[in-house]
Amino acid sequence: MTAGPPTRIAIDHDDHHAEHVGRTADGRQFFLTTPFEPAGDDDEGQEFVALFLFEGSGRFLEARIDALGPRARLDQVAARATYEGRLASLGDVTFTRIEVEPFSVDRFGTTFGLIPEPPEDDGDDWWVILEPGDYMAFCPPWDSGEYDT
């Protein structure tokens, strides 16, 4: 069991949810991803494009988030263009492992970020969950760079 939430977590570049993580030419770290709110009983869910920026040291700087609309009516062409536009806005990048601090921001009535969650039971570990959508979950050791989906 870990004593508390991490101050930094590692995310290794891969061909899945961490395809676009790395460093910009000026040394900042970035994570470009597609969070979502699943459809529920009372709503259609939402799709987003999120670009999270961090200092070279891993301290959170800012979140640039685009709301793409309801999941059921998502315009795939427009969504891809938004995503590619965010990636292009970074200029020259290197896709590589990042080590960043957990954070959260509220936009569009939704909480986004790498959010620490305390243990549910004695003997359990802290987790850091990518929200919304809970599609990447990190657990100790925090420097492993691996995640569960």
Rank of each mutant, 00 (worst) to 15 (best):
S144R: 01
I129W: 07
D134M: 11
T110C: 11
A79T: 06
C139N: 14
P141K: 08
T7S: 13
F103H: 10
S104W: 09
E117W: 02
L32C: 11
A79P: 14
G45R: 01
F95C: 05
D121P: 13
G113T: 09
R86V: 01
D41T: 09
S144H: 14
P141N: 13
A137P: 05
E84C: 03
F36D: 07
R97I: 00
T34K: 09
D43Y: 08
D121G: 14
G40S: 11
R73S: 15
T34C: 12
T24H: 03
H17M: 10
A50L: 08
V100P: 00
A78Q: 14
W142H: 13
T2V: 09
R73C: 01
D15H: 13
E62Y: 05
D14G: 06
V77W: 11
R71M: 13
T33W: 02
H13M: 02
T111S: 05
M136W: 08
G22E: 00
R97A: 15
H17E: 10
R86I: 03
A72Y: 02
E44V: 01
F36W: 13
L61R: 14
S144F: 10
V93F: 00
T96N: 10
F30W: 04
P118Q: 12
V105H: 02
I129C: 06
G123W: 05
D12P: 07
F48V: 04
Y83R: 05
G4D: 07
P118V: 06
A63K: 01
A78H: 05
E117H: 10
D14Y: 04
I9L: 08
A3M: 15
F48W: 03
W142E: 10
R86F: 06
G22V: 05
R86C: 04
G27Q: 00
R80H: 11
D42Y: 09
A72G: 14
G69K: 02
W142L: 09
G109D: 06
F112P: 03
I98E: 01
F112Q: 06
V128E: 03
H16G: 12
G56E: 03
R59Q: 15
F112I: 05
L61S: 02
F112T: 09
Y147D: 11
D124S: 15
T34M: 08
E101N: 06
I98V: 12
E44L: 08
P35E: 01
D121R: 12
F54L: 05
E84S: 14
G58Y: 03
E62W: 01
E120H: 12
E131Y: 06
R86D: 04
Y135V: 11
E99V: 03
D12A: 07
T2F: 10
G113A: 07
V128F: 04
L74D: 11
A18F: 03
Y83I: 08
F36I: 06
G27D: 01
D124N: 13
I98W: 00
Q76L: 14
P38L: 00
E47S: 13
R28F: 05
W142G: 10
W127H: 15
E84K: 07
E47V: 04
F108G: 15
P35D: 00
W126I: 10
E47N: 13
M136Q: 12
H17L: 12
E44R: 10
G69H: 05
L114P: 04
P6A: 00
D75T: 02
D124P: 14
A79C: 13
D125M: 05
V105F: 01
E37N: 10
D143V: 09
T24E: 07
R28K: 14
R73W: 00
P35H: 00
G123A: 03
